[in-house]
Amino acid sequence: MHIAANTKISALIKENPAAIEAIASINKHFEKLRNPLLRKVLASRVTIADAARIGGCEVERFYEQLAPLGFTVTAENSTESMEDPVYTSAPELSAFLRSLPAERLHRLDVCEDIATGNDPFRKIMAAVDKVDEGSALLLINTFEPTPLIAILKKKGYSYFTEEKSPDLVHTYFWRSGTAGPQAEESIKPAENNFEETLARFAGKVKRIDVRHLEMPQPMVTILGELETLPAGEALYVVHKRVPQFLLPQLGERGFRVAINEAGPNEVYLLIYRAEK
């Protein structure tokens, strides 16, 4: 397989599962790749270039580890392959932060929310709304918030992540003024005729309950189930809340979702492939 800096980690693993250990051996930053739950949600979003940035190493280090597995580097890798990565932190961020007055850096720590199973989405979005020109948000979390990054990039925010320790990640967000034309649509359910949609898939529904799982495992579990969902069938999910981080992930993968908020800590999702 020919690879370049913009090759997805998931593509490497699909081609040769031994790539998991090859990458994990580069340094401690990549040991989380051995966790199948985290791997499902992160590998499909991250390129070799993104991973190198996160791990603080050169892209060439990946090439060295992957070469014995039969991977070869494309000749045009040096320039073209670096275009349009999945996520790229702006290089000017460090200078931006150094010049930013302390009172203009808003801090939000959601580690306790994650540890207790509370969804911090609304709290985070409320903090994001307070960020204006000349200010930034520092989000303190236990892992790199890849789904949130996807949402905020579409809303016109730049970002930078800094791993302080294996279980402590600082992510900075600030306005870049490049919001996509449909940023708001990406975090809304595709439709909400729940009972009508459920009747349409009568006898063709797989049911899972993710209420007992800690974040981010509900989202990872759902995405994992959708990978093997047969055509013409739907996934019925019992959840404690509307998973706001999951919704844009579904849209990107070609799925629609109907939602029934039955009561406190009782939400039902019906997820199915959009008709072409």
Rank of each mutant, 00 (worst) to 15 (best):
I140A: 07
T197Y: 13
S165T: 09
V41L: 12
A22W: 01
A150C: 06
L66M: 05
V73H: 02
S158E: 11
K155T: 02
G56Y: 08
A95I: 04
E225M: 10
G117E: 04
A183W: 11
S89F: 07
E163M: 06
V267I: 07
A51Q: 05
T197F: 10
E144R: 05
S44M: 14
G203Y: 14
E162T: 07
V128N: 05
A262G: 04
E163P: 00
Y272C: 09
S158H: 07
V86K: 09
T88P: 00
S135L: 03
L66P: 00
E64T: 06
L168M: 14
F71R: 05
I140Y: 10
R241A: 07
T228F: 06
P243G: 07
S176H: 10
A43S: 15
V59N: 13
V242E: 12
E196H: 13
F143T: 01
A22D: 04
T74E: 13
T116V: 09
L168P: 03
A51I: 06
L250D: 03
V257D: 03
N118P: 01
Y63A: 04
V41N: 06
V238Q: 03
T7N: 03
M1H: 13
T47W: 08
D119S: 13
A150V: 08
P85F: 11
P243N: 11
R98I: 03
I151N: 00
G70F: 08
V242K: 09
S158K: 05
S158Q: 06
L69W: 04
I114G: 01
K188A: 10
I271S: 01
L139E: 11
E184A: 10
D132Y: 05
A126P: 00
A43R: 02
I259S: 03
T72P: 00
I259P: 00
I13Q: 02
R211V: 03
E58R: 13
R253A: 14
E92W: 08
N193V: 12
P243Y: 09
Y172S: 01
M125F: 13
A179N: 07
K164I: 10
A90E: 12
D209Q: 14
E252K: 15
A262N: 12
R207P: 10
H29Y: 10
E196S: 15
F255I: 08
R53P: 00
E31A: 06
V205K: 15
T116H: 11
I140Q: 14
E252I: 08
P218A: 14
V131T: 12
L168C: 12
A52N: 08
M219S: 02
V210Y: 11
P243H: 12
T88A: 12
P17T: 10
H212V: 03
A231R: 08
F30E: 02
I149M: 15
P181E: 15
N192L: 15
I140T: 09
F255L: 07
I48G: 02
F30Y: 13
S176Q: 12
